[in-house]
Write a protein that binds this DNA or RNA. Structure first.
Lengths: 211, 211
DNA sequence: ATTCTTTTAGACCAGTCTGGTCAACTTTTA
DNA sequence: TAAAAGTTGACCAGACTGGTCTAAAAGAAT
């Protein structure tokens, strides 16, 4: 939709954020275009001037958040880092930055992934597959498995590390719910987070004691 | 509501499940009483014969799921088990059994907790506080901290264990979404789950090497 | 058999909200 | 100044809302 693309940045993001929020809160069917235009502070007609209908808007959002995920998250992960925990730590930092910029995109992406691949429009499936592959390679490839102590299953330890990071992220999200992001000093949170990661290193890596 | 209490077990659970499902899917405002009666396969009038209005039904559900959580989950946890991981393992098994019996209660409880204490009706706040205290004591009291290796922070390790269990639970929930619970053989899943817990033990406990 | 009470169903209510349209108005462009 | 592009919100038919009420069915009591 050229009409929409060429909008002032402000209005564009206002509409996008309103739509992302509405859809991630209520899902496609229950999301209300009236709520969206109200939140975005535009006339009702405009939404349907920019987008043919509700569905097209929804698909646009999916496309948009795929792009964000790829460009602002996955591609920024440095895959030279062979230490899994350091790699994930890095990824978490990047994700956080992206979340600060597009908070609703993050939630929306969550609901999209939750509902499963089937309901992604056919047009976007190739991009989605690329995203998945990219995600896999950016997170799991070129990892140095030898860091792990040899009396635990590496793939399970992997998973545990991920759950730890997810867990912390969720905890943070809950704790900071409703707060204004720009007013928060994140340093103590990062410190706490790194503390958890240190424990994982101490516990899961061998540190030259064996292997 | 005596009217409702004295119903045949079948009809009662049909209504409860329908309501739990609807409310946990859509939240209070967006939940439709029409959907509920349709799902429960009763006439519209009956719902308002049993419950004064939508809100009273909702409150009844909250009360009900508090009871379930206390009786079918918390009170069944054996607090003689001083090993945290074993205690949590046990708790997870119990929770799973409760979930199998009341799948929608579990989700409903999640949404209730998510929305925060404020919106719990005043009448139920004392019960909710008891629930919280009971939960805390049943999960965290009488734990043997000396099992942990002494080069990691115990409280953080604690948290990591919880996140691991949550993570596995979520993974399972996602994997088994839509499947018929009674037809699933859970043994391999439990085995996998215990595998994760073993790693946590190996990694977080000292096993007489120190302390 | 008759009356009285309790259950049940779903048509119905007024009102809200739905996605989407459209004529009228303003602003930008040429 | 006129054509084009952008913008608004009143408006549409129809779906759905929480809740009511009548009338029938079922049960209990006499």
């Amino acid at each position: 939709m050229k009409k929409f693309q060429n909008l002032d940045r402000d209005k564009k993001t206002r509409i996008l954020n309103a739509a992302f929020q509405e859809f991630s809160e209520k899902g496609f069917e229950l999301a209300s275009t009236n709520s969206i235009v109200k939140k975005a502070n535009i006339g009702k007609g405009m939404l349907f001037y920019y987008f043919k209908n509700k569905k097209e808007l929804y698909n646009y959002l999916i496309d948009f958040c795929f792009d964000i995920t790829i460009d602002e998250y996955l591609l920024k992960i440095n895959i030279e880092q062979k230490d899994v925990i350091e790699r994930f730590k890095q990824a978490a930092i990047i994700k956080m930055a992206a979340f600060a910029e597009y908070p609703d995109v993050y939630n929306f992406m969550g609901t999209v992934l939750l509902k499963g691949e089937e309901h992604i429009p056919d047009k976007l499936k190739p991009k989605f597959n690329r995203l998945q592959e990219l995600g896999y390679s950016r997170l799991y490839e070129n990892i140095d498995y030898s860091l792990f102590r040899d009396d635990i299953e590496v793939d399970k330890a992997f998973q545990l590390i991920q759950w730890a990071i997810e867990g912390y992220q969720n905890k943070l999200k809950q704790e900071l719910y409703g707060k204004n992001f720009s007013e928060i000093n994140f340093d103590p949170y990062w410190e706490e987070f790194f503390g958890y990661l240190e424990i994982l290193k101490t516990s899961f890596y061998s540190k030259g004691r064996d292997a």
